[in-house]
Each structure stands twice: as structure tokens, then as C-alpha cells.
Simulated scan of single mutants.
Amino acid sequence: MTTEYAGLAGWTPAALPVPGEVRPVVSAPDPVLSRPGPEVDPTSDEVVRLAADLIATMRVSPGCVGLAAPQVGVGAQVFAVDVTGHPKALTVHGTFVLCNARVVEATRWKSGREGCMSVPDLTGDVKRASRLVVEGLLPGTGAPVRLVTDGFEARALQHEIDHCLGLLFLDRVAGAHAIYQRKVYQ
């Protein structure tokens, strides 16, 4: 794992041997959202199916750039991210799923607005690293990945890792003054 995105280059959702099914997204205060998920065996059939389901669910959810296992009711350290086409995204690694991911370096902290499918009525200002190094494992093969990213993709990764640790963006805001009613566009 020595390159900028070692192990991820060439991986696509098609690498998963099963098609994904769309799962319902749970909302706060569902207890699964506030419990740290256990680490998983990324080569297990159950985790491979979960990875495919996360991608399928993310793809049918407008504006969704990431989805973690707890958001579909599964306490596990697995999440999907894809910031492709988002106007705030500068660095884009495409669609990927990571298991047992952890932040190994975080720098250049900035505040930014976040929302979440599991907290559909609110957004909040959250301070996160805008440069990030994350390590995790790919579902199916268990191959290690070291991902270096920045900006919006870094924010999305931290948001999803937080879900796997039992945290919502509301747990990261500076206080009630940094929480807002989500705007509804018609």
C-alpha cells in the first residue's frame, strides 16, 4: 500500500459477484445509528451482498454521495461512497465500498454544511479534515486500500466512517446554532 490509492485502482462495483438490492434507509433515532458497528470479514458472502446493496440503495437515492451499513439497519463497518458529478467534488475516486476503514491522517480542517438521509429534516455545519488518508479493505477480496483524498470526497468519507462508529453529523456540530432546517425544493 504505497501509492495514492493503492488497491482501489481498477476496482468497480461490477467486481462484486452479486447484484444489489435496494434496502430501506433507517432514520434517527433508530438505535442502530448510535452503536459502533463491529469490524467485518470483507470476504464473507454476507458482507459482499451488503456492499452490493449499499451501492444499489445509494444509486436510487437522489443526491446521495455515501451510505453506511447502519443506515440500512446493519451494525457493521461497511460503507459506499461516490461523489462523481457532485459540483463540490474536486478529487473523485468513483464508486467504491470500504470495510473496516480508519482515518490514518487528517489535516486542513474546515467547516462545511452536511446533510444525511438518516436525518432527513436537518443539516448542520461540521468541521472536518479537508485532506485525508484512509485505510480499509475491499469487499469480496479483502484487498487493502490506502486512499488519499481531499475536499468534498474527504468530507463524505469521514461522514460514513462516523456512521460505522455510531455517530451522526449532529454529534459533530458545535451546538444548536449550527443546525438548520433542511430546505425543501419543489
Rank of each mutant, 00 (worst) to 15 (best):
V119A: 02
L147P: 03
G124Q: 00
L138Y: 08
G115S: 06
L138S: 05
L157I: 13
A129K: 01
G112S: 14
G136A: 05
P120N: 02
L165S: 13
C164W: 09
V119I: 15
K110M: 14
D171F: 10
S130R: 13
P144G: 11
T141K: 06
P139F: 05
A156V: 15
P144E: 12
V119P: 01
R172F: 11
E114H: 03
G136Q: 04
A129N: 02
C116I: 02
R155L: 06
A178G: 08
R146A: 02
K183M: 14
E135C: 04
R146K: 13
P120G: 03
R172H: 14
S118H: 08
A176G: 08
G124T: 01
F152L: 12
P139H: 08
D162M: 13
V145I: 10
Y185N: 12
L167E: 12
T149L: 03
C116L: 01
R108F: 07
A176S: 14
G124D: 01
R108L: 11
Y185D: 12
V133G: 00
H159W: 06
L170Y: 13
I179G: 03
C116Q: 01
R113V: 15
G112A: 15
A129I: 02
I161R: 08
S111T: 15
D162E: 11
G115Y: 04
F152M: 07
L122Q: 11
G166F: 10
H159M: 08
V173W: 07
L170W: 12
H159T: 07
D150V: 01
G136Y: 07
G142N: 03
S130L: 04
G166T: 09
A174K: 14
D150I: 00
H163S: 09
R108S: 14
D125P: 00
S118Y: 06
V126T: 01
Q158N: 08
F169K: 08
P120D: 02
G175P: 12
K183N: 10
D171Q: 09
M117F: 12
R131T: 11
V173Q: 04
L138M: 09
G166A: 10
G136P: 03
R128M: 04
H177P: 06
Y180I: 09
L167F: 15
D125F: 05
V119Y: 02
R155M: 06
V148K: 10
G115P: 03
G166S: 09
G136V: 07
F169H: 09
S111L: 10
R146D: 00
E114V: 05
L137E: 15
G142F: 09
D171H: 15
V134D: 01
L137M: 11
D150K: 05
S111K: 13
G166I: 11
L138N: 04
G112L: 11
R131G: 02
V145Q: 03
C116N: 01
V173K: 04
P120T: 05
R155F: 10
V134R: 02
L165K: 14
L137N: 04
R146V: 13
R128L: 04
V148S: 12
L132P: 02
D171N: 15
Q158T: 08
S118M: 09
I161F: 08
G115T: 06
F169S: 10
E160H: 12
Y180F: 15
Y180P: 05
P144V: 11
G112R: 06
L168R: 11
L170G: 12
R131P: 00
K183C: 09
Y185E: 14
P139K: 04
R146L: 07
L157Q: 02
H177M: 12
D150Y: 00
G175M: 13
P144Q: 10
